Measured scan of single mutants.
Amino acid sequence: MSRVPSPPPPAEMSSGPVAESWCYTQIKVVKFSYMWTINNFSFCREEMGEVIKSSTFSSGANDKLKWCLRVNPKGLDEESKDYLSLYLLLVSCPKSEVRAKFKFSILNAKGEETKAMESQRAYRFVQGKDWGFKKFIRRDFLLDEANGLLPDDKLTLFCEVSVVQDSVNISGQNTMNMVKVPECRLADELGGLWENSRFTDCCLCVAGQEFQAHKAILAARSPVFSAMFEHEMEESKKNRVEINDVEPEVFKEMMCFIYTGKAPNLDKMADDLLAAADKYALERLKVMCEDALCSNLSVENAAEILILADLHSADQLKTQAVDFINYHASDVLETSGWKSMVVSHPHLVAEAYRSLASAQCPFLGPPRKRLKQS
Rank of each mutant, 00 (worst) to 15 (best):
A213C: 12
A207M: 13
S92A: 10
S358G: 04
P8Y: 13
F57Q: 03
E304D: 10
C68E: 12
V18E: 04
E79L: 12
E230V: 15
E20D: 08
C159Q: 01
N265Y: 02
L86F: 14
S171N: 03
E50N: 04
H347I: 10
E112W: 08
K215D: 08
S340Y: 12
A329D: 02
L218T: 11
D130M: 09
E300G: 04
K115D: 09
Y24R: 12
W36P: 00
P223T: 12
E47S: 01
A207G: 15
L143Y: 09
R368G: 07
A146W: 14
K31A: 05
C256F: 10
V287L: 01
P9D: 06
R70N: 13
C294W: 12
L84N: 09
G208N: 13
A357R: 10
K262D: 03
G365R: 10
L293T: 11
S59G: 05
M254P: 00
T260K: 07
A350V: 05
I305W: 08
G75Q: 14
F104V: 15
A213H: 15
V51L: 07
S21Q: 10
C289E: 01
F133P: 14
V343W: 05
D310S: 06
E351P: 11
G75W: 06
E160M: 13
S85Q: 10
L186I: 07
K238T: 02
E12C: 05
L142R: 08
N296A: 06
V342R: 09
L143A: 01
S197I: 15
A213L: 14
S105F: 04
E249N: 05
Y24K: 09
S236T: 11
V179L: 02
F136D: 00
P182Q: 04
V161R: 00
D153S: 12
V181I: 03
K53N: 07
E79R: 05
Q212I: 12
S171W: 04
A321R: 00
L348D: 00
E79H: 06
E210C: 12
C256W: 02
I305G: 10
F32D: 04
K237E: 03
Q165S: 12
E113V: 04
T114P: 09
S336P: 09
E145D: 07
S119D: 01
P223S: 14
Y353R: 00
F32L: 14
L150W: 11
D140E: 08
M117C: 01
S21N: 04
H328G: 06
A11N: 13
Y327T: 05
D152A: 10
H345C: 08
I170M: 03
I170Y: 03
I307P: 00
K28M: 12
A359N: 04
N301E: 15
L89P: 13
G261C: 04
A357Q: 03
